[in-house]
């Protein structure tokens, strides 16, 4: 992750990075084990354990802006918001998966980690492929193959919240919750 790591901040709606490809059922205990996340409230500390269950060194290997690509049911298991937080603060600019577990999906939008559900992504991205993710259009482009994938639509208020960098940032800017009119 390096010292210059910072999450994809408000206003940066297009990011470019290398793909890290994973399989199905990447659960929240893999994304950040309980014994680490339960001992800190600091997102940068959480980031040191991103994907610990598969590779304790993941946070040192990825570069800011990289993208996780996965199969079905990404983020299953716990309600722990530390899971998307750890990924975001480790420098992950987006997660693209065939499908997401319900709570992880909500949490990702809430904390401002772009989560793109693209059912046809399986087999279309290789480890290390350069991807461009556009949060406004909700698309991902594989530069190697020139293919552009469009993610499943989400309600407008969720999309707006994501573009603003999550619920807290949205609230700070508009002084209201995105779903209250």
């Amino acid at each position: 992750m390096g010292n210059d790591a910072s999450p994809n901040v408000t206003g940066h709606t297009i990011s470019k990075g290398s793909a890290w490809v994973f399989g199905d059922n990447i659960n929240t205990d893999i994304i950040i084990p309980f014994r680490f996340k339960s001992r800190t409230n600091d997102p940068y500390e959480m980031a040191k354990y991103a994907m610990y269950g598969l590779d304790p060194e993941f946070h040192n290997k990825i570069s800011n802006g990289d993208v996780i690509v996965a199969g079905r049911n990404f983020g299953g298991g716990s309600s722990r918001e530390q899971a998307p937080v750890a990924l975001r603060y480790a420098g992950v600019s987006a997660v693209i998966a065939e499908s997401f577990a319900r709570i992880f999906y909500r949490n990702a939008f809430t904390i401002g980690l772009p989560a793109l559900e693209i059912p046809e992504i399986r087999g279309k991205v290789m480890q290390g492929d350069e991807l461009i993710v556009n949060i406004t259009k909700f698309t991902a482009e594989n530069i190697r193959t020139n293919e552009i994938f469009v993610a499943q639509k989400v309600p407008e208020f969720m999309h707006q919240m994501l573009i603003e960098g999550g619920l807290v940032e949205y609230y700070k800017k508009y002084k209201r919750l995105p779903w209250i009119y």
Partner: peptide, 18 residues
């Protein structure tokens, strides 16, 4: 049903959620 931390904070603030 289960949700995340920041969403529960929003419920604490307003009593409501989508």
């Amino acid at each position: 049903s289960g949700i995340g931390s920041t969403e529960i904070a929003a419920v604490w603030a307003t009593g409501q959620l989508w």
